[in-house]
Every structure is written in C-alpha cells, then in structure tokens.
Nucleic acid binder design. Structure first.
Length: 468
DNA sequence: CTATGGCACGGATT
DNA sequence: AATCCGTGCCATAG
C-alpha cells in the first residue's frame, strides 16, 4: 500500500500534464478565468498574488496596467510586432473604449453620459414619480451589454412592489433609445427592436419566428438548419440573418448601429476579445502591439505555506494534500505553457497576416492551421485548440473570431463583393466566375453562387435596382 | 433555355 | 475520425 502511494505521487506528470495543457489551451480567456477561480476556491495549495507586476518581465506596473517595457517594440527590431501577456485582466471597459473611438462625433455627446442616466432622462417624463426608485434600481442592474441579468422577481421583492409594476417600467425602458435595452436576454432585445422597426418599415417574413424559435441556430450561423426548422430555403434563412445583423443589435449597450457606416459587418463577435492588436498610442504609423489578455490579474502560484505544512500533515490527510499540491503545480505549469504557446502563435500569425490586420479583408493570406503548425514545430491539433473559441480585436476596433485569420476564401469573397459593387448591370454567376478567373482566382460557377449567398448578396435577377 | 439553389460526393482540413 | 469546402449534376423557377 505504501509503495503504491509513493509511486503514484512520483509520476503524475507527462500524460496528465499533456491532457491538461490541451484543455487549457482550447479555453477562451473568460472560460479560463472561471476555471481558475473555481480551482482557487477549492484548492488551498493555490494562491493568487495581487501584485502589480508585468507577467512577462516582472517589473512594477504603472496604473494603466500596461508594462512600459514589454509594450514597446525592441529597438533593434522595430518591425517585429510586440507580443506579450497583458496584465490588464479587466478588458471589458477596454473594448468598450475602443468601439467608442469609432463613433462619429455627433454621437459622442450621447455616449459620454453613462447609459443609466441617459436612459433615466428619456423616460423621466413618462415616469410616475413613485416609480423613480424602481427605475433607478433597474437601470443600475444593467450590465455592460445593456442587458438585465437580474431576475425581475428579485427586484420586485426587493422593492416591495408587484411584479406587474416592474414589468411596466421595464417596458418603458426597453422602448428607449438604445432600443431593447434592459431586456433579460439578447433574444428579447431583438424582439423589442423588431417590434418597433415593424411600425416604420417592411420586415422579411418569418423574421420574428426565426428569432423566437431559432435563436440558437442564428447565433451559430447555422442557416441550413434554421431554414429547415422554419420550412424555408437556406438562402432565405440567410437573408433573414443578414437583415437581423444589419438592423438589430442583440447587445443594446454596445452602440454599434450608428448609421450606414458599417456596410459589411459580417461575422462580428460580441463580448470580450481574448487578444487585442492595436497601434502604440493609437498612432497609425507606430508598430503593432499584440496583447494576449490574461484571465486574472496578478500571479498564480503555489502557496508556499501550504507546501511547508505538508511535512507536518496528519497521516490520514497526507494523500489528499499531496494530490492538491500536485494539481496546483500542474495548473500553474500548464498555464505558463498555454501563455507560451499563444505568444509564439501570435508572433508568427501577426507577421503572416500583417496586411490583413492593417488593410482589411481583401488582404487576408490563406494560411492553414497545418502550415502554421509546421512552422512552429507543434502538432496541428495544438494550433487548432489555440485558435478555437478565441476572438481578436483589430486595430480598427472590430472584434472577429481568431479563426478568421485562417479563412481560405475570404480574399476571393471580397473580390467578389467588389465586382458586384462595381457592376453596371447585374452579372450572372457565370459571368462573375469568368471575371474572377481574369483576376487569377479559379473558382467554379457553383462556388460563386455559394460565396454570393455567404455574403448575403441576392441573385442577379433580383438585384436590379435596390439602393436600400 | 438560362440562372440558381439543393444535394451529395470526394478531397482537404482540423 | 469528424468536419468543412469546392464542385458537379439535376431539378426547378422565371
């Protein structure tokens, strides 16, 4: 028995290590944070140091949370992008700020005021004086997305008012400027917006049902399935999806639908990015800086007190404590490995896709995961896991899935979009295919059709005169 | 008859 | 091994 525990304690690494590294790598920053927090809560051998030190070079950090050394390009290699683990774990406000910078000037005044007061001003005239505290309570419960994550009943109980009154006040809020704000789910936000929009404008058939019954499919871009569920064709389902993404906003808190400025917002991702690419000081000429956002602020390490007390552990607890310690050190190690892999991946990726990052969709290099795996001398699946489920914020503030950097057909699709934008008369798929051949893209006529629907472009015949 | 979408197959990718 | 993607063939709509 004794021999068994010893050998068990001696060789827990390798396989377990590998397995955990893989799972950690495939987690997004948010998921990883949850995982770490739960580990931290349950495992006394782990400890989080709230130091304000850079995770890369361990120098003291200024209040901004950005390491002045690591975020600067090296003098001897100014062209090399800087890739580092970012110490600022709280990036919600960060991404929010980035999107605000994109707003045209006239929107600034509205945006500068914070959301709750902005809303309160709107609803004040229609609001019964007695309901003011209730409204204030509701508004302060809004999260960054403009959604209400607290159940209504809870608020009703807290304020000692009937549920119906809470509902009527909330209804007032939902009809205020960021339309749908205060809805409990993105789904309901969309429905409210749709309802208001329906009064002034024609809406594709079945849009409401698509949101009600196919929300899950909609967010997964599973248009084929959506079509089946609604009993319509895939392309019709795609049209509905396109209409929704162009006219509605599932997260009313993020002011994103300002005018016609965003014509091609294809697969915009909402939520927090895992990686942020920006120019230093927002200066377009400055080198690129790549931050891999850390899931936690501070340093995760083994609790040295716990380790020392292991020597005096009571007989019956020894095994349990040892296991906790092993698990903790495993987690710390794997976390480092994950960071290392991500840094190496991004270092190479940013060089390969520099054009795309700076100039946009048309300049995407068709890089495959397998190719990158060979370059980095890691297994394909490692790259796969590192890429999956992560999102990337580009210097222009857009957040896209990291897998977009591995899209093999995006540059052809943008070429296609250009052709159609410049066409004098509607071109048939066959004609477009020929034009693409002249540009050096060998795509079959059938494929043109696929790309066209992917971009949400109507068939030639129906495309005649519709300047939206 | 032409343009286009659906389905399914094979090869590449993950 | 599972999934995605480009393509060919066929049915259908205009």
């Amino acid at each position: 028995m004794l021999l068994q525990t010893q050998s068990h304690a001696l060789r827990p690494l390798t396989t377990a290590h590998l397995a955990q590294t893989m799972t950690l790598l495939s987690l997004s920053t948010q998921e990883l944070r949850q995982k770490i927090e739960s580990e931290l809560a349950s495992n006394p051998a782990l400890e989080l140091i709230h130091d304000r030190r850079c995770p890369n070079c361990h120098r003291r950090l200024p209040a901004t949370g950005l390491c002045p050394i690591c975020s600067k390009p090296q003098l001897n290699a100014p062209d090399q992008p800087v890739v580092f683990i970012s110490a600022r774990a709280d990036f919600r406000q960060y991404s929010g700020r980035a999107s605000l910078e994109e707003l045209p000037d006239e929107e600034w005044t509205a945006a500068e005021e914070d959301l709750p007061t902005y809303l309160l001003r709107q609803i004040a005239p229609e609001l019964d004086q007695a309901d003011r505290p209730l409204a204030a309570h509701l508004l302060t419960c809004l999260n960054d997305d403009g959604l209400l994550s607290v159940p209504l009943v809870e608020i009703a109980r807290y304020q000692h008012v009937p549920l119906s009154r809470v509902e009527s006040v909330l209804d007032l809020i939902q009809r205020s400027d960021p339309l749908g704000v205060g809805s409990p789910t993105p789904q309901e936000a969309l429905l409210v917006q749709l309802g208001m929009l329906a009064e002034t404008r024609a809406i594709p058939a079945l849009t409401e049902r698509a949101i009600r019954e196919g929300m899950d499919l909609l967010s997964r871009h599973a248009y084929l399935e959506l079509g089946k569920r609604l009993g319509i064709s895939t392309s019709q389902a795609q049209l509905i999806a396109r209409f929704i993404s162009e006219n509605l906003n599932p997260f009313p808190g993020r002011t994103h639908w300002g005018g016609a400025s965003q014509a091609q917002t294809n697969n915009q991702v909402y939520g927090s990015p895992d990686i942020v690419i920006s120019h230093q000081n927002n200066n377009r000429a400055a080198p690129l800086v790549v931050e891999i956002l850390s899931p936690i602020s501070g340093t995760l390490r083994i609790n040295s007190l716990f380790k020392r007390s292991l020597a005096q552990a009571p007989e019956d607890k020894l095994e349990e404590w040892q296991a906790a310690l092993d698990q903790a050190s495993l987690l710390v190690k794997c976390l480092q490995q994950r960071n290392h892999t991500l840094v190496r991946l991004m270092q190479r990726l940013v060089v390969l896709q520099r054009e795309f990052i700076l100039k946009g969709d048309a300049h995407l290099n068709p890089v495959t995961r397998a190719y990158l795996a060979i370059e980095l001398e890691v297994h394909e699946s490692t790259v796969s896991r590192a890429v999956s489920g992560k999102s990337l914020q580009l210097p222009n503030g857009r957040i896209v899935p990291l897998s977009k950097l591995f899209d093999r057909s995006l540059h052809i699709r943008t070429a296609l979009r250009q052709i159609i934008a410049q066409e004098r008369k509607p071109l048939s798929d066959t004609e477009i295919s020929e034009l693409l051949h002249k540009q050096g893209y060998q795509v079959a006529r059938r494929t043109v059709a696929k790309y066209r629907t992917m971009e949400g472009i109507l068939p030639a015949r129906f495309r005649h005169a519709s300047p939206v």
